[in-house]
Write a protein that binds this DNA or RNA. Structure first.
Length: 155
DNA sequence: GCCAACGTTGGC
DNA sequence: GCCAACGTTGGC
């Protein structure tokens, strides 16, 4: 079992949107970066857990946990000319883009902001904190996963 | 294959 | 809105 971090802009799709889904699941579509694609296609497996990260908002940070409920499969939004994620170069016989399905697990009582994360010496090497990193899917080491859990405010 | 121009991400 | 840090595109 592996750990991941998935980025999304809450104005597009946030953790509350996921929680509001009837089955609390959603395809993680629209990833159009090859490095991220490779992870979605080859590495992220059903049963894995991921941090839900809100980007491009105030403040950015980790807002909760999701579980991968379906391993990588073709992102069909790439085949749909009406979709914002349409890519003519991706064909159903030879799909270029992939996605996984995720399910809501929990929302943290408070966001663990990027600001807070940056102040933790224990998180050195955390890919999210690497300068210039823009990947929307990235692996999280088990020790980093556990450490971040410890930052969650207790009720 | 090189690399300049252009587009995107995402924090600030 | 700005801009650094990429990634992609396309001419050569």
């Amino acid at each position: 079992m592996n750990y991941w971090l998935l980025k999304s802009e809450p104005s597009t799709f946030g953790i509350d949107d996921l929680k509001a889904r009837p089955k609390k699941t959603e395809p993680w579509d629209g990833v159009r970066n090859y490095q991220a694609r490779n992870m979605l296609r080859d590495e992220i497996k059903k049963g894995d857990l991921a941090f839900f990260y809100h980007s491009n908002c105030k403040p950015p940070g980790i807002v909760g946990v999701v579980e991968v409920v379906k391993s990588g499969y073709p992102d069909h939004t790439a085949f749909d000319p009406d979709s914002a994620y349409f890519d003519a170069k991706s064909q159903p016989q030879n799909p270029r883009w992939f996605m996984v399905d995720v399910k809501f697990v929990k929302k943290f009582p408070e966001i663990i902001s990027l600001d807070i994360l940056k102040k933790q010496p224990e998180l050195e090497g955390f890919p999210l904190l690497r300068k210039g990193n823009r990947l929307s899917v990235m692996p999280v080491a088990a020790e980093h996963w556990n450490f971040v859990q410890g930052l969650v405010k207790k009720d």
